[in-house]
């Protein structure tokens, strides 16, 4: 009987200890989270290797299937390139002009003090509930928690924790994610939230649409810059469908993100430059 009591006591003590650790690790930048390094540092080279092999295999399979199609596409693309080159020449003129005008107006360029860090996705989330992935850049590369993550198409999400050589990124389609956004057309403020039901199709939902807001299918949604995590003006996606429950007061929209979350391979992490310079000192 005493033995059983003893065991129960141990179980209780372990449970309480884990609960305390959980409580401590909830805090942002908590030191407890560095425990993860034990595993992530060892595992990430293997994950990178497997992903590399996977990409190669996929690439080879694609190659064998598509040689014919690629030849045709190549011809078409060559034509397109010559067209685009003309356009580029025109546009570069505009760019110069734009730059001069901006300087004249003294507009602060939001991306001028931001560093773009390229990163590869090396692992996906383990369970089925969340949409979190791991990238191959960590504290040593200057990644900090709450940095925005984007691709060339649009917003992907933000960094939720960074280990030594890898970081975890939560996507905007995860149920835990909320982004303050704006309708590009009317400048109305809205929220983009992840949804468990829409997640699997790679979609998310738009909340907080006031009755007087004029919203229609095909409208572009961009980040508002409020909240301090995501810089202003990053494309999130397009409105796919507007649904109303009972009245105009109670409606939400389905968003099709500009990023294809199923085929995501490389992303950019936005780090502010002052942060980036400081990192070297912090690590020492």
């Amino acid at each position: 009987m005493r033995f059983l009591k003893n065991k129960l006591f141990i179980l209780l003590a372990v449970t309480v200890a884990i609960l305390i650790i959980m409580g401590l690790s909830v805090r942002k930048n908590s030191k407890v989270n560095s425990v993860s390094n034990v595993l992530t540092v060892v595992l990430s080279p293997f994950q990178e290797f497997i992903n590399y092999i996977g990409d190669r295999v996929e690439g080879a399979a694609d190659y064998l299937q598509n040689v014919e199609a690629l030849n045709q596409e190549n011809e078409a693309l060559k034509l397109r390139i010559s067209e685009l080159e003309k356009e580029v020449k025109e546009l570069s003129d505009y760019r110069e002009k734009n730059k001069e005008l901006k300087e004249a107006l003294n507009i602060k360029d939001q991306f001028s003090d931001v560093e773009f860090l390229g990163a590869n996705i090396i692992a996906k989330d383990i369970g089925n509930w969340f949409n979190i992935f791991t990238i191959d850049r960590g504290i040593t590369d200057g990644i900090t928690v709450d940095s925005a993550v984007i691709t060339k198409d649009g917003l992907v999400g933000r960094v939720i924790s960074s280990d030594l050589v890898s970081s975890k990124v939560i996507t905007i389609i995860d149920e835990d994610s909320t982004v303050s956004a704006r309708l590009s057309k009317t400048r109305d403020l809205v929220f983009v939230k992840g949804d468990l039901q829409l997640k699997n199709e790679g979609l998310c939902r738009l909340d907080n649409i006031f009755p007087d807001v004029d919203i229609s299918v095909g409208d572009t949604i961009e980040t508002s810059g409020l909240g301090g995590i995501y810089p202003k003006g990053i494309i999130i996606g397009k409105v796919k469908e507007v649904r109303r429950k009972s009245s105009d007061l109670n409606r939400y929209a389905i968003i099709e993100p500009a990023v294809d979350f199923k085929r995501l391979e490389e992303v950019f992490v936005l780090e502010s430059k002052d942060n980036f310079d400081k990192v070297g000192e912090d690590n020492r």
């Binding site: 449970t15 650790i21 407890v32 992530t40 969340f130 924790s161």
Partner: peptide, 24 residues
């Protein structure tokens, strides 16, 4: 159970200890 849970916490959890406790 504890160590499998901890592995999951380290790789994809938001909080260290949640899956560890469940696994245990």
């Amino acid at each position: 159970g504890f160590f499998c849970g901890l592995t999951q916490d380290m790789l994809s959890g938001r909080v260290i200890g949640f899956y560890a406790l469940l696994g245990l």
